[in-house]
């Protein structure tokens, strides 16, 4: 006569059912995106680029991750700026004219307020707290999924921008006023 499994057997069975359910779900669900795509290449410092200064650096092809100087050039040329940090951090200080778009606004279906003001054909500079923060890459993924492919991430984030004394602002996003 078959016997009921022991506590250890039941433990393993519950875990196994969870694993099988998860594997099945992941197989039928559309693939998750772990990293943003590199944007179409943009060469800074040539005639077809947004470089505005006569002493612009020599031509550099921009990828997904960009430096502070490259971000400044893009912003000066009219790129959108997106803050991927928390609301509290945004209101305490952000790059002037930033949109506030942490990735969770996309998950919650609340990103449209900002997207209404954004042109998908304009370059976008995204930032978070710099260093080990990955919020800007998460926002880049979500922007790309919504048709905004020209995304760049300022890897050193807001601390570097602020330390360079580039234009900043405080309070609510400009489009909420």
């Amino acid at each position: 006569m078959p016997t009921l499994p022991t506590h250890a057997g039941r433990f393993a069975l519950i875990a196994l059912v969870g694993i099988l359910a998860g594997l099945t779900h992941s197989a039928i669900h559309e693939p998750l995106k772990l990293k943003p795509d590199a944007p179409p290449p943009l060469v800074l410092g040539t005639s077809n680029t947004p470089a505005t200064s006569p002493d612009a650096p020599q031509a550099v092809t921009l990828g997904l991750d960009i430096t502070l100087a490259q971000a400044k050039q893009l912003v000066d040329a009219g790129a959108h700026v997106v803050d991927a940090r928390s609301r509290e951090e945004f209101e305490a200080g952000h790059i002037a004219n930033s949109f506030w778009l942490p990735a969770n606004l996309f998950y919650e279906g609340k990103a449209q307020d900002a997207l209404n003001f954004m042109d998908p054909n304009t370059r976008i500079v995204i930032y978070c707290g710099g260093g080990a923060c990955d919020a800007s890459h998460n926002t880049a993924k979500m922007l790309q999924e919504n048709g905004y492919k020209l995304t760049h991430v300022l890897t050193d984030g807001y601390p570097a921008w602020s330390a360079a004394n580039y234009p900043t602002a405080t309070g609510k996003p400009f489009y909420e006023n």
């Binding site: 039941r10 519950i14 059912v17 969870g18 694993i19 359910a21 998860g22 594997l23 992941s26």
Partner: peptide, 24 residues
Amino acid sequence: AYVIPWTEIIAGTCLVLGLWARAS
């Protein structure tokens, strides 16, 4: 990303029902 939530739901359901309660 899928296995953790499914295991949470299955173990949680067993626990609420009182099915294999100690194991869940």
